[in-house]
């Protein structure tokens, strides 16, 4: 399961080069370079405020990055190719075309409360892929089946548990058949007993070969499902290696060591 990135056969679907991001004067991301390989599960860990969400949100241009490049299958994300600095953002329609192939799942689910589960999943199929209502609904139901919610299609979000809501949000993203899925702490807003059902769905997706970038505090998931784990600290990608190297023997990097140390202490108590 652990793919070795040093092997040359792997092909990156997404490449990040020299990515930097400022909020006014504050630098949230500092010169990040990273490849995401096809069918790989890449987990991002790190202390709060280290820039994990910001990095993830740069990957689909929900945040504008000022320096560096994010490319998916060779195409620059968000900015017009070859435009001089200051770079020009893509036209909205072109940006939307890029985003529809990048799925995203949020910590707070962000379901639309006035739509049923089925409508939540079908909406983008209708508005973006221009499917007819019937076809959109049947594809929505198929996606809901995948996340084991086939029987909840008619529920409104308020009638679903947190774990179920998050699975609807996952179904909403996979119904678009994205090339890559981004998860921002998908289980952090959930009660502990609901975390498992969401992780199980994500594990299933990984087994089916979905490319996934997952920001998470679930070290168990990172250790067992990820192909590689990236550790962020103060906007810098400190290291990005197979989980065995991160969690196995005592890590050489002192910052990673102290992060894992505090994490273990917190979870023992």
């Amino acid at each position: 399961m652990t793919a070795d990135p040093s092997q040359s056969a792997v092909e990156p679907i997404m490449t990040v080069r020299g990515l930097s991001k400022w909020f006014d004067d504050f630098q949230a991301l500092d010169d990040i370079s990273l490849d995401v390989n096809r069918s790989e599960v890449l987990c991002l860990i790190g202390p709060s405020g280290s820039g994990k969400s910001t990095l993830l949100r740069c990957l689909n241009f929900l945040e504008r990055y000022q320096a560096g490049e994010v490319r998916k299958e060779g195409r620059l994300i968000g900015w017009q190719e070859g435009s001089a600095s200051p770079r020009k953002p893509l036209r909205p329609a072109a940006l939307r075309e890029q985003r529809r192939h990048i799925g995203m799942v949020f910590q707070q689910f962000n379901l639309w409360p006035h739509f049923t589960a089925r409508q939540n999943v079908a909406e983008a199929l209708i508005q973006v892929q221009r499917l007819g209502r019937d076809e959109a609904y049947s594809r929505a139901e198929a996606a809901l089946d995948k996340v084991n919610l086939g029987d909840k299609a008619n529920n409104y979000p308020s009638g679903l548990s947190g774990g179920q809501q998050q699975r609807v949000a996952i179904a909403r993203a996979i119904a678009m058949e994205p090339d890559i899925m981004l998860f921002d702490e998908p289980t952090s807003a959930l009660d502990p007993e609901l975390v498992g059902e969401v992780l199980a769905v994500m594990k299933q997706m990984a087994a089916e070969g979905m490319t996934m970038v997952v920001v998470t505090h679930e070290m168990g998931f990172a250790a067992h499902v990820a192909d590689r784990v990236g550790f962020l600290e103060s906007g810098r990608l400190v290291t990005c290696r197979p989980p065995a190297d991160i969690f196995g023997s005592e890590p050489s990097d002192p910052r990673l060591r102290s992060f894992l140390q505090t994490y273990r202490e917190r979870n023992v108590v």
Binding site: L62, Q98, R99, R100, N110, W112, H114, Q127, V128, M176
Partner: peptide, 25 residues
Amino acid sequence: AGQTEAAEALGIPPVALWRRILVPQ
């Protein structure tokens, strides 16, 4: 705001975002 972000991440255009998601709510 997350509801709007979710729509943007899916590539839903602004007109549909307003007509289907924001205005009804």
